[in-house]
């Protein structure tokens, strides 16, 4: 029988070598440790984050003495009292949260058809084009993209130049809340599509065909078959986009014109502008709490979606 090159792929050989090396390192019967060893990277990652959070928690309980610029050697809730008493804190939390929800909704609305066409199209050329268009922005950083919008939407930008051709006076398209949300949606769209595409790929085309053959038009098939089956992907994409938007710094800083700060901008100001790391740390923990509670609420109402990784998906 002819032996094909692919009958024992090189990746399997590589795994054999790894397995042999593993057997050398671990004593006989140590296989029971394997799952725990595989967990090590995750434990290290989460552990590092946890230690960082402990430090931030500690900082948040120390108040800055502005005559020495040293932090108190005792714990106090003063930073939290200040955060909850200043109306500015509520303003930026509300602005960040509402912004994140709007960005998530609009992103999912745009990402779904994009991902659907990318997954379902029979044209290889179109699929490649959509993939390239999806990945291209990843090679351009968020800050560069934001500056790109400054050029396009500025008073002397391309859009206003085009409007001038039809006699419209220059419009202030930048440095306001909609501009920040617009920039965020453009930034988040690839994340949304990437999270949705696997969920849509997992829906067999036959099911859609079955719905159509049973008399459903494409709208009914979409709402009664595709969307419910894509829900895990929508939830996963929604959570990722929501958390990234909630904690974003660059878009509010660049497209907001200094008047549309999110919580991350206020944290930056405290850490680096007023040197009050204690107050900055308290805002950090408040942001983490707001984000965690929001995600927890989503999980409680809708389930964890694709983020459940196969277990307990609703």
């Amino acid at each position: 029988m002819r032996r094909y090159k692919t009958s024992y792929p090189i990746s399997w050989r590589f795994m054999d070598v790894l397995e042999a090396a593993f057997a050398l390192v671990l004593p006989r019967g140590g296989g029971r440790l394997t799952p725990y060893l595989l967990l090590t990277p995750a434990v290290l990652l989460v552990g590092t984050l946890a230690v960082g959070l402990l430090y931030i928690g500690d900082s948040s309980l120390r108040v800055l003495d502005r005559s020495t610029f040293l932090f108190s050697d005792y714990w106090t809730l003063e930073n939290y009292q200040r955060a909850f008493s200043e109306s500015f804190t509520a303003t930026i939390i509300w602005r960040s949260l509402v912004g994140a929800v709007i960005v998530t909704a609009v992103t999912l609305l745009l990402a779904f058809p994009y991902a659907y066409v990318m997954v379902r199209t029979s044209s290889a050329l179109l699929r490649k084009f959509l993939l390239v268009a999806l990945f291209l922005p990843f090679f351009i950083g968020q800050v560069v993209r934001a500056y790109g919008w400054l050029i396009i939407l500025g008073n002397q930008g391309i859009v206003n130049d085009a409007l001038a051709l039809v006699g419209v006076e220059p419009l202030r398209l930048l440095f306001n809340y909609p501009a920040v949300l617009f920039g965020l949606v453009q930034y988040m769209l690839p994340f949304g599509v990437l999270m949705l595409a696997p969920a849509l790929t997992a829906i067999p085309e036959d099911i859609e065909a079955a719905a159509t053959s049973l008399g459903a038009n494409w709208v009914r098939a979409l709402f009664h078959v595709v969307l419910p089956m894509a829900r895990p992907g929508l939830i996963g994409a929604g959570v990722v986009v929501l958390t990234l938007s909630l904690t974003d710094f660059a878009m509010p800083a660049i497209l907001g014109g200094g008047s549309q700060d999110f919580v991350a901008n206020a944290i930056y100001d405290q850490f680096f502008r007023t040197s009050d790391q204690g107050f900055g740390a308290s805002l950090t923990l408040i942001l983490i709490a707001v984000g965690s509670m929001t995600v927890g609420l989503i999980f409680a109402v809708f389930g964890a979606g694709t983020l459940a990784l196969g277990a307990n998906r609703k």
């Binding site: 502005r66 610029f69 500015f88 100001d269």
Partner: peptide
């Protein structure tokens, strides 16, 4: 300035972004 700028900055932002 250093003893008060944090309050001044916060107040200014509160007004401008409120």
């Amino acid at each position: 300035q250093v003893e008060n700028e944090s309050e001044w900055f916060s107040k200014f932002k509160q007004i401008m972004q409120g």
